[in-house]
């Protein structure tokens, strides 16, 4: 028992959770932007996966992981645009199109991996992102351990959380975006350029997932492996809901998921009498519980998943 408590409150667990939360946070905020604009985005999963792949590809081709991140951003933006095209212009059912997109991207990344690196399991090793140590912060006892030394995407994540919140709740663009998600017809009547804003927010959503994916492959492991997103996109969608369609909430929820995941990994190493399969289930079970719990008390944007034709 003492051992378990030790792991639960260990600073290393909290610090590991920050690292694990990065892809979830990016994708969950991607989910916030698309769902606030009225588009259910199950494609987060595939976008993460594609971002992870593009990141490794960029680093593989140039030897520079930062160009890998750039690849992931471009790839995410492109996929976000395609998803917008299908859900907005071609009026595809959001949920079906999202799942279709995920299957497509799983197929394409696994295919390309075999063409490029000749293996269906993992890619070759590439140069990953290096850690950046912040001089003064890293020497402060607890904070230093938590925030002192990370790669650039971790710091970017904190910036994205705050900026996204400001964009959504403190700018005219954010207000318009939220109106669209609640009532497209009303937004249209107000003269808001619905399509432009929806496309923008989905492309932004794709970019965020690209960054999250790049962290998975370049910030964590330095290689790509088949289906490496492993359901994180769906968890991120749940985190977005649990966080009340708010970037700050999405961050908190993602951190909670990440913390359980960190705990799970550490508990496996403890050699408790609980089998590893059961411990591995914890994050999945938690996702279900949290989602069910969150839905009882929160309300999604009213226009979520609906199609609307503008007359302009």
């Amino acid at each position: 028992m003492h051992e378990i408590l030790d792991v639960i409150f260990n600073i290393n667990t909290f610090s590991a959770a920050i690292r694990i939360s990065v892809p979830l946070v990016f994708a969950a905020i991607g989910g916030v932007f698309s769902e606030r604009a009225g588009i259910i985005n199950l494609g987060l999963e595939g976008m993460l996966l594609a971002g992870a792949f593009a990141g490794v590809l960029g680093s593989y081709l140039t030897g520079n992981p930062y160009i890998g991140v750039l690849f992931a951003i471009i790839c995410g933006a492109f996929i976000g645009f395609i998803f917008a095209l299908f859900t907005i212009k071609f009026e595809a059912n959001h949920v079906v199109a999202g799942v279709g997109l995920n299957i497509l991207l799983l197929g394409i990344t696994t295919w390309l991996m075999q063409i490029l690196w000749g293996s269906r399991g993992t890619s070759v090793n590439v140069t990953g992102l290096n850690e950046i140590t912040i001089p003064v912060l890293s020497s402060i006892p607890v904070l230093g351990k938590l925030f002192g030394s990370h790669n650039i995407l971790v710091y970017l994540m904190f910036i994205v959380v705050i900026i996204s919140w400001i964009i959504l709740f403190k700018t005219p663009f954010g207000l318009r975006l939220r109106v669209i998600g609640e009532h497209q017809e009303a937004a249209d009547t107000l003269g808001i350029k619905i399509r432009k804003i929806q496309y923008t927010s989905l492309i932004f959503s794709g970019i965020l997932c690209g960054l999250g994916g790049a962290y998975l492959s370049l910030g964590h492991l330095n290689w790509f492996s088949m289906n490496m997103s492993a359901g994180r996109g769906y968890m991120a969608l749940a985190a977005n809901i649990f966080g009340g369609w708010n970037p700050l909430g999405a961050f908190g929820a993602s951190y909670l998921f990440a913390y359980t995941d960190a705990l799970q990994m550490r508990m496996q190493a403890l050699n408790l009498n609980v089998p590893n399969e059961i411990i591995q289930m914890i994050p999945y079970i938690l996702t279900i519980l949290v989602l069910a719990g969150a839905m009882i008390r929160s309300r999604p944007p009213a226009g979520l998943g609906k199609h609307y034709k503008t007359n302009r």
């Binding site: 071609f90 199109a97 279709g100 299957i103 799983l106 269906r120």
Partner: peptide
């Protein structure tokens, strides 16, 4: 030729069927 091509085709079929307007 990697059989994952089939997964690609599945994904495409779903996307295209879901978008009759296209």
């Amino acid at each position: 030729i990697p059989m994952d091509l089939m997964v690609v085709i599945q994904g495409l079929v779903i996307l295209f069927v879901a978008a009759p307007i296209l």
